[in-house]
Design a binder for these strands. Sequence first.
DNA 1: TACCGAGTTGCACAATTCTTCAACTTGATA
DNA 2: TATCAAGTTGAAGAATTGTGCAACTCGGTA
Lengths: 113, 113
Amino acid sequence: MPVPLYQAKADFFRTLGHPVRIQVLELLREGPRPVRDLLTEIEIEASSLSQQLAVLRRAGIVNATRDGATVVYELSSPDLAHLLVDARRILTDMLAGQGELLAELRAEGRKVG
Amino acid sequence: MPVPLYQAKADFFRTLGHPVRIQVLELLREGPRPVRDLLTEIEIEASSLSQQLAVLRRAGIVNATRDGATVVYELSSPDLAHLLVDARRILTDMLAGQGELLAELRAEGRKVG
DNA sequence: TACCGAGTTGCACAATTCTTCAACTTGATA
DNA sequence: TATCAAGTTGAAGAATTGTGCAACTCGGTA
């Protein structure tokens, strides 16, 4: 693997490594959403959400477009959805036999695919 | 998404978010390997590699088994390979038109799938 | 037992990242 | 223009991670 590449991959994964950012991405998987919408589903202050959206934006993982007074976010790559599904599968493997978290992962799997 | 789940996902991704750990995982994708082997391919001191292997072990992402005097590591879930491939695809999307990193990603894509 | 090679661990300091709050921008409305 | 709602930004201190080195454990071997 060429030198800067594993660094880019590491940066990418690190960007995903935050609970609020994960919640945002899971919501955006279903399609573009205004910030106001995200704010009602994620319990957090507006400025904190904005901080995390900025991290995702700077990393190029989401795109923001302004529509009048509201800002709408969307995933910049549809493959993000695959990645999140893979991650769930891996967590299922890893947590096999480790209790309630496993049950939740399975329940989500039924809904999502 | 239930409360602790996005936290588990975030922790998982954060664990992947380090250049040495990415290199290790990419090498282990091809199969189990002794530490000595990893050490010759990754330019780093033994103790630093050990630190990062410990992070992956604690997260349950790799498993270590002792074979005499050498320790062999392997991925704990084969789906990790899919995830890394998805990640490459996403980076390709995101970096489209951004120069040399893109060329490297494509070259790797030809080799790997 | 003594010794060496293979790995691991603990620790202290450096570097990043998070969190929170106040201040600011932009668009809509009166 | 004044004002309000929607988001964003900047900055400081707190918390988490990363780095490098010395010390340690465990097998194998003389």
